[in-house]
Amino acid sequence: MNGEDTPLHADTGVTSGLFVERSLNEIRFWARIMKEHSLFLRLGFRAEDTQLIQEANQFYRIFEYIEQTAHSFNNQTDPEQIRRFNSEVQQAASNIFLFKRKVLGLILTCKLPGANNFPLLVDHTSREANYFRKRLIELNEGKLQSLPDAIIKENVFFLRIMADHAKFIGHLLDPSERKLVDLARNFSNDFDQLLYQARDLESMKPQSQTVPLLDQFLDQNRVSVVSLRDFKKTARDLIEQCKIKSIIHPLLADHVFREADRFLEIIDMFDTHLTHGTP
Score class of each variant (00 low, 15 high):
residue 199 R to P: 06
residue 58 Q to I: 00
residue 149 D to C: 03
residue 184 A to K: 13
residue 147 L to Y: 06
residue 63 F to K: 09
residue 85 F to D: 07
residue 47 A to D: 12
residue 249 H to P: 00
residue 39 L to S: 15
residue 28 R to L: 06
residue 133 R to E: 06
residue 14 V to D: 09
residue 275 T to S: 14
residue 52 L to M: 11
residue 145 Q to P: 00
residue 110 C to H: 08
residue 181 V to M: 15
residue 203 S to N: 14
residue 162 M to N: 12
residue 60 Y to K: 11
residue 240 E to K: 13
residue 119 P to K: 07
residue 25 N to S: 12
residue 179 K to R: 10
residue 27 I to C: 07
residue 50 T to E: 15
residue 65 Y to N: 05
residue 18 L to T: 05
residue 19 F to T: 08
residue 149 D to Y: 05
residue 134 K to W: 12
residue 51 Q to D: 14
residue 88 E to F: 07
residue 167 K to E: 12
residue 19 F to Y: 13
residue 113 P to I: 02
residue 6 T to S: 13
residue 38 S to Q: 02
residue 256 V to Q: 00
residue 191 F to L: 03
residue 232 K to D: 06
residue 161 I to W: 04
residue 56 A to V: 01
residue 101 R to Q: 12
residue 143 K to T: 09
residue 230 D to M: 11
residue 274 L to G: 13
residue 105 G to M: 03
residue 16 S to Q: 04
residue 43 L to E: 02
residue 78 D to L: 01
residue 94 S to E: 04
residue 167 K to Q: 08
residue 53 I to Q: 12
residue 213 L to F: 11
residue 87 S to M: 04
residue 97 F to Y: 10
residue 279 P to I: 03
residue 108 L to W: 01
residue 99 F to Q: 09
residue 78 D to H: 01
residue 262 R to V: 09
residue 128 E to Y: 08
residue 200 D to W: 05
residue 84 R to A: 08
residue 112 L to C: 00
residue 117 N to R: 04
residue 188 S to V: 00
residue 144 L to W: 03
residue 16 S to E: 05
residue 192 D to K: 13
residue 277 G to A: 02
residue 246 S to A: 05
residue 132 F to S: 03
residue 202 E to M: 14
residue 271 D to Q: 15
residue 257 F to Y: 15
residue 235 A to C: 08
residue 50 T to D: 06
residue 34 M to C: 11
residue 226 V to Q: 09
residue 159 L to E: 15
residue 32 R to M: 10
residue 158 F to L: 06
residue 264 L to K: 13
residue 179 K to Y: 14
residue 78 D to Q: 02
residue 36 E to Y: 07
residue 207 Q to L: 07
residue 99 F to V: 07
residue 182 D to T: 12
residue 152 I to F: 02
residue 178 R to K: 15
residue 52 L to I: 11
residue 261 D to T: 15
residue 169 I to T: 15
residue 83 R to F: 02
residue 6 T to L: 11
residue 160 R to P: 02
residue 35 K to W: 05
residue 9 H to C: 09
